[in-house]
Design a protein around this nucleic acid. Structure first.
Length: 358
DNA sequence: TAGCCGTGGGA
DNA sequence: TTCCCAAGGCT
């Protein structure tokens, strides 16, 4: 490292890089320089914890080892590798972006933050992360970790979502990232937030930046940043039909938008009130008339701002739809052993366990 | 711009 | 049990 380059960074920046060099966790995506593999990790890590992502990242990369392999696959082949990870629009956008990279960039991710930002699923964070980590560019990032670390270090006031606060955080990130090893510096900030400068019980005694921390000096570490204000969850009641034939259940593929978009499920309809005509609702979702059988119970799942209640019934009809009908793009009779090859939500996996259990 | 979009782990 | 939320993006 040239002395002139090293002298251009602040003592805070140098301290974080030195700390990162010995404290960094050994994560699988830190062993590769492949921009595609790094991109995949960044998308999977959005709103998702490291321990959850690791096995998904490894399975996905083994099945789709290159941008070209991903772009060439049908979305229906890709979603099974995202099943259970949540926020499925990430997978749909990843797939679309892979096709755009092949069509517009010759199959290689562009080494440019603005060009990355134009691809589906690349917001300001992911564009900066891939630009800095995969390509060594001085691109800033602000994620939840960086926001918390900077809020404390520089006493940035305001709650998450506050415009002036976000602007200030991005200004700080843009200042600090300038200098040697911008990718490692960005990762050092996030690593500090994840392991030391945590939401609860931060370990300030072990912090490499404690000499530079405004919140620590002011005794305000616990109160910065203020917690996000969340809307109360809404109740979403659904009725689900288990139509069984020769040990298989009829599943439909949801439209590629909204909740669980593109995933497979037992035919499902809104069930907003007790007086809803359940067979009529399920017949509408299926595009076929069905009769109602045994009640198989209720499966409850909690999402970030939905409380799902899935009321499961056996149903029966004369002939099942083969083509798109009702709310679904396609239908399939699915044996238990075939479930792993379909894109399913965790909620629907629970429902299927119940349907086959009875 | 604020609501929507999942999941599992920890306190 | 209940609440929190973790490497955000889209509309």
């Amino acid at each position: 490292m040239p002395a002139a380059s090293k002298s251009r960074q602040s003592p805070l920046r140098a301290a974080l890089l030195d700390w990162f060099d010995h404290a960094r966790r050994d994560l699988p995506w830190r062993r590769t320089k492949d921009p595609y593999a790094i991109w995949l990790s960044e998308v999977m890590l959005q709103q998702t914890q490291v321990v959850t992502v690791i096995p998904y990242w490894e399975r996905f990369l083994a099945r789709f080892p290159t941008v070209g392999a991903l772009a060439a696959a049908a979305l229906d082949e890709v979603l099974p590798y995202w099943s259970g990870l949540g926020y499925y629009s990430r997978c749909r956008n990843l797939h679309r972006a892979a096709q755009a990279v092949v069509a517009e960039h010759g199959g290689a991710l562009p080494a440019d933050a603005d060009a990355l930002r134009a691809l589906p699923g690349f917001g300001p964070y992911t564009a900066g992360a891939v630009a800095s980590i995969a390509f060594g560019l001085e691109a800033p990032i602000v994620d939840g970790n960086v926001a918390r670390v900077f809020s404390r270090l520089f006493l940035v006031e305001g709650a998450p979502g506050d415009r002036a606060r976000e602007k200030r955080l991005w200004e700080l990130a843009a200042e600090q990232v300038k200098g040697p090893r911008p990718g490692d510096f960005n990762q050092a900030l996030m690593e500090l937030g994840a392991t030391v400068c945590r939401v609860e019980r931060p370990t300030c005694l072990l912090c490499p930046a404690r000499a530079h921390c405004g919140a620590l000096a002011a005794g305000r570490v616990e109160e910065l940043p203020p917690a996000r204000v969340r809307a109360p969850r809404k109740l979403l009641n659904l009725v689900v039909g288990a139509w069984e034939r020769d040990g298989a259940l009829l599943l439909g593929r949801r439209a590629e938008a909204g909740l669980f978009g593109g995933l497979w499920e037992l035919p499902t309809a809104d069930y907003p009130a007790r007086d809803v005509d359940i067979p009529a609702a399920l017949s509408g979702a299926l595009g076929r008339k069905v009769t109602l059988g045994e009640h198989l119970g209720v499966v409850r799942r909690t999402l970030t701002h939905r409380d799902l209640e899935l009321h499961l019934f056996r149903v029966k009809g004369r002939s099942a739809p083969a083509q798109a009908a009702g709310a679904y793009q396609a239908f399939r009779w699915v044996q238990p052993a075939e479930v792993a090859s379909l894109g399913l939500s965790a909620a629907m996996v629970k429902v299927l366990e119940r349907a086959w259990d009875r």
